[in-house]
């Protein structure tokens, strides 16, 4: 479908970005106390697990990782030509009073994040929610910003950014398609 595609982050680049984000998360929160990770299905979940592994390497503590599916919280239910299947939300811990780091692969309009915030709030009242994304491609339609960003990539609306994962769900590369 795409005539041109450029790899803007390879596996090593993604790994370095996640390691830096892990350090930033620890710095901002002064450790891992009361910290939980929630990934947005499906890309964000794989990244959240990677991030949890990085945090464990650095701090030696295993953080709980939840998954949130935002399909039921979308603002565009009507008018989907291919109606989206509902995935499973699985947050096997209480978010009440926790510091939640929400993880997604690409930050674009901000609508997905808005939906995810509502979904998490329906599970309880966290102390705070911080946002970590691998790529911020701009074009926000809502007043939302990320606390931790792997790479800022200015894009045009015609371009598309996707994060590819390998067979073991490890992030393999970030591709810009024109």
């Amino acid at each position: 479908m795409s005539a041109e595609s450029t790899v803007i982050l390879d596996m090593a680049g993604i790994r370095r970005a996640l390691t830096r984000i892990a350090h930033e998360v620890l710095e901002k929160n002064k450790g891992v106390d009361n910290l939980v990770l929630v990934g947005i299905r499906t890309g964000g979940v794989h990244l959240a697990r990677e991030l949890a592994a990085r945090l464990e390497e650095i701090e030696g503590a295993k953080l709980p990782v939840g998954e949130v599916d935002i399909t039921l919280y979308r603002d565009d239910i009507k008018g989907h030509s291919a109606h989206l299947p509902v995935g499973k939300t699985d947050i096997p811990f209480s978010v009440e009073g926790k510091k939640v780091v929400l993880v997604d692969d690409v930050l674009f309009t901000g609508r997905t994040i808005r939906a995810a915030l509502d979904a998490i709030m329906d599970h309880g009242r966290p102390a705070c929610i911080q946002l970590a994304v691998l790529v911020d491609r701009g074009h926000r339609e809502l007043p939302i910003r990320a606390d931790f960003v792997g790479r800022n990539v200015p894009t045009s609306l015609k371009e598309n950014i996707s994060v590819k994962f390998d067979a073991n769900y490890a992030p393999a590369e970030v591709v810009l398609e024109k």
């Binding site: 599916d69 399909t71 039921l72 919280y73 979308r74 239910i77 299947p85 509902v86 995935g87 499973k88 939300t89 699985d90 509502d118 979904a119 329906d122 599970h123 309880g124």
Partner: peptide
């Protein structure tokens, strides 16, 4: 698809707040 969607919906029925804005 309907059965898989229902599997996803079940999680809502086990929450404290059993409501989504869909």
């Amino acid at each position: 698809l309907l059965i898989e969607t229902a599997e996803g919906m079940r999680e809502i029925n086990s929450r404290d707040i059993k409501k989504v804005p869909t």
